[in-house]
């Protein structure tokens, strides 16, 4: 078994202002595939929180459980509860969740390809009825000047531009919490850096809370305040990002080894012994 990271002193005394708390949820797909088995996490208001884990650990499912999009994939929360801003949202319709201030940027960007950039942005503000939509479009353009030049269909944008459009669309909804599912997917290392820079800027400029799911653990931990590691539908480890970055096991599994070369035989036995569950 893995020893837990010792809690940092500041975490212990200052009570956290929690915006989202997921409490021991269990998610079942198609009535019998158990994906999340008692997952709990909390997200502090105004922070960037990273949720890391291997493929199939249930990271995307966690986000969909929070946003309510699970239902359209035949998934269901069978136990536990999700509280956002003091309200229980575990069984809410996704459109109501968006209205209460949670916006999910789904994996693979999900741009509406047969619409223009502007129409995509306008749709981001679908739930809003205030007059600030026009100003916000200009604001998004000031963040992503490249999008303003693209007047054609969004389907013709490059991968990076589509990711920026997806983030811009999320900004248009003025959410309190953005759930971001693998923003670095399919982007070149340079673009990944740019996208993470933007995520950090969004968080600092607007105080929007971000829950980030990533494969690129190094990048995610570099900009997050707190990190959670998932395996097999459970949180197996969590702690402040800087501590996770220093953790030997994280280095080994997620950050590409600790530098020194190991023989294949050693790695195998090490992994078997260190299996987290």
């Amino acid at each position: 078994m893995l020893q837990t990271v010792p809690a940092s002193s500041e975490k212990a005394d200052a009570p956290k202002d929690t915006i989202l708390s997921v409490d021991n949820i269990e998610v079942v797909y198609n009535e019998y595939v158990l994906v999340l088995r008692g997952l709990s996490l909390t997200v502090e208001r105004g922070s960037i929180t990273a949720l890391l884990g291997a493929n199939g650990a249930g990271k995307s499912t966690t986000l969909k459980a929070i946003s309510g999009l699970l239902k359209s994939e035949d998934g269901e929360i069978t136990r536990g509860s999700i509280t956002f801003d003091g309200q229980i949202i575990s069984h809410q319709e996704p459109e109501r969740t968006v209205r209460s201030g949670i916006f999910q940027v789904m994996e693979g960007r999900r741009i509406i390809q047969d619409m223009t950039v502007l129409e995509n942005l306008k749709l981001g503000a679908f739930t809003r009825s205030d007059g600030g939509v026009k100003d916000d479009i200009d604001l998004v353009y000031s963040y992503f000047p490249r999008l303003k030049e693209r007047t054609g269909l969004a389907g013709y944008l490059s991968g990076g531009e589509q990711q920026m459009l997806a983030i811009g669309r999320a900004m248009m909804a003025r959410p309190k919490l953005i759930l971001m599912d693998e923003p670095s997917m399919g982007l070149s290392p340079l673009l990944v850096k740019e996208v993470f820079g933007i995520i950090k800027r969004l968080n600092e400029d607007f105080g929007v809370t971000i829950l980030l799911v990533e494969q690129n653990a190094a990048m995610a931990l570099a900009c997050a305040r707190h990190g959670y590691i998932m395996e097999n539908g459970k949180i197996v480890l969590d702690g402040p990002a800087e501590e996770l970055r220093e953790n030997e096991d994280i280095k080994e599994f997620y950050l590409g080894g600790s530098g020194e070369r190991k023989s294949f035989k050693n790695i195998k036995s090490f992994k078997r012994r260190k299996r987290w569950l």
Binding site: P94, M106, I112, D114, M115, K122, F126
Partner: peptide, 20 residues
């Protein structure tokens, strides 16, 4: 109208934007 086009394109994406 835009919401209807979005729904025609992909229902889950439309839902993620808050469209019923």
């Amino acid at each position: 109208g835009l919401a209807m086009r979005a729904t025609a394109f992909n229902q889950q994406t439309a839902q993620s934007l808050g469209i019923s």
